Computed example of a mutant assay.
Amino acid sequence: MQQLMLKFLYVVALLRYPGIRRDLRYFIRDNYYARLNQIRFLWADYFVKKPYKVIDYHGEFDQELRYVLPFAYWHHLNGTLKKTISCTNTREFYFFSENHSETYEKRVWQAGYGYYEVPNMTHSPTFSYTKFAQVPFKRHYKNDLFTYGKPILVIANKYNIEWDKPPINFLGIPELDRIISSYKQKYQIIYNRPLSSQIVLDNSEIMDLNEHDWIRKQHPEVILMHDLHEQYRAKVNNFNHLQLLVYANTDWFISMHGGTAALASYFGGTNLILSHPGGGMEHHFNEYATIFPALSGAKILHAKNTNEVFRYLNEHY
């Protein structure tokens, strides 16, 4: 029955989006099926309204942020959330869950495929916000610990394998030097590029950009998230907890394609995302204008190359 329904929904996607690439219709089909799957829970969600929903996910971090967390928080608000299950060091993301289990030690990107338990489960030109609630990270984690004399600007960089190719979406040392030199007087810049020892990995191998020591020497005014982690180990539970605390006090972000961009979109303010065409599906479905701002109401600026990064910085920062 499921296979027949998926075939039918592929035809629906073809008829509704005849101009879209054939392989992209599978994403649309899967999202249609995921939304229809929610009909099974109509009585439990809207009439019985007792805790029953167990949300179990260990796929890509990006998908968890964009789709799973807002779904889990909706169930929390609805009174129907029973338990959440995810990876190591995710308890702080699920602060609202009274029963959260950190079962998985590694993310498996394939786990996101065929996962129809969440209404929005993959890329799509449209999303359902019926069972979608903004997770109030900013309100919950706002603090007096990470405050400075100037507003914070977080540069959330990355440097890892993308789609089995060398790094594509990242800021190199020349770009970092230009940004830091231009904006360190106006902002307290905090630089964040997690190491493999600080987060749970999926299929994206983290590589060495050799920028941390360079920043310490050339721009000592910049605060490194690594250094904050060492300094506040006794006050934070893990690196994810630290990110949430720092980001909650921030209104200005520069982030990279993927989970880095999704996390920075959770805190309102302005998030400038570098995402080159040719890799992720976000471009094909215009998702930087839909699901990303929906996460918190943040203003999303999508730069397709480093020249656009500097143009947006000049116009908005």
Rank of each mutant, 00 (worst) to 15 (best):
H229C: 12
M5E: 14
H276L: 07
N305Q: 02
F267R: 03
P277M: 06
T90K: 07
Y26G: 07
H75G: 04
Y26H: 14
P136G: 08
N238A: 09
Y67M: 02
N143E: 14
S128M: 04
F239M: 13
L201V: 11
L4C: 10
D45L: 14
H257T: 01
R193N: 14
T147A: 13
Y33A: 05
I161R: 12
P167H: 09
P125D: 12
V12F: 08
S204H: 14
F285V: 07
K184N: 13
D213T: 05
P51V: 10
T306P: 01
A44G: 05
F47K: 11
H229I: 06
M121S: 15
A34V: 00
I254N: 03
L65S: 00
Y113E: 15
Q134G: 04
N160Q: 15
I223M: 11
S97Y: 03
N240A: 05
H229A: 14
I291D: 00
T90H: 15
E230H: 15
P151T: 07
I190N: 02
K184Y: 03
E282A: 11
F310R: 04
H140S: 08
V54Q: 10
L69T: 02
C87V: 15
N271S: 10
P167V: 01
R193S: 13
H212V: 08
L77D: 07
P293D: 09
F95A: 02
T88L: 11
A72R: 00
T80A: 05
L171C: 07
P194H: 11
C87F: 03
K138Q: 14
T250N: 08
L36V: 09
A262Y: 04
E287V: 06
T88N: 14
D144W: 12
S296C: 09
R66W: 03
W109L: 11
R193D: 10
A264L: 05
I152F: 11
E92H: 10
W74D: 00
R233T: 12
P119Y: 12
F253T: 04
T290Y: 04
L77P: 00
Y191G: 04
K53G: 05
D227W: 11
A72D: 00
H212S: 10
K235E: 15
R29W: 08
K138A: 13
Y312M: 09
W109I: 13
E230W: 13
T306Y: 04
R193G: 02
